[in-house]
Amino acid sequence: MNGTLHDLQQAIISADTAHVDQFLENINNTFDYERIYNECIEPALNILCANIQDRKGAIPELLMGLKQVHRIAGATGYSGGSKRQEKILMGVVEGDIHDMGKNVIRDVCTGYGYHVTDLGKNVPSAAFVEAAEAQQADIACLSTMMSTTVQAMEKTIMQLRACRPGIRIIIGGAFMNQEMAGRLAADGYAKNASTVMNEIERILQ
């Protein structure tokens, strides 16, 4: 059985749809998602993220692996969001509609078992505040690709802190960096989808 799970981990890493199909057919609902997640999915996603950081891979491979993860989750009846207790809110701040990076981050967080509320793009600060309160969000991931929307980012961070003082905030996007995170009073900065999990774990400590 361990060999089967190891094979599945490799199938996720190599985005081998046929192999994943074979696994799902063989288990015939006898595996629980918890075990598959712990022994296959999380290690596979960790390897895919590490490959990006080591320049042995790139984001599309992580996305292809995540596709397999979502298929496994669907086939095993896992509805998502129950692996981790923290709730994540995310969106692209007002004035910007570049949402590719944010969408990748959303899929990574979902793949790692977080409950994610995605507010989309061009999101006013008031909408972030309303959702943060309604969802009792623990983490907010804010994104922008532009320099002209840094003020919108700053305003959103200030308002989120005012409505939920304990919320942890991570920023990302082309003009963002660790220094900018400090300047905008964010808790963390994710350079790309491969580092967001490390950053979430760091700010939750």
């Binding site: 190599s14 985005a15 320049r55 790139a58 599309p60």
Partner: peptide, 11 residues
């Protein structure tokens, strides 16, 4: 643009 180069060729 997709993140690939000579050291990490695309699959």
């Amino acid at each position: 643009l997709l993140g690939y180069g000579s050291e990490n060729p695309a699959p």
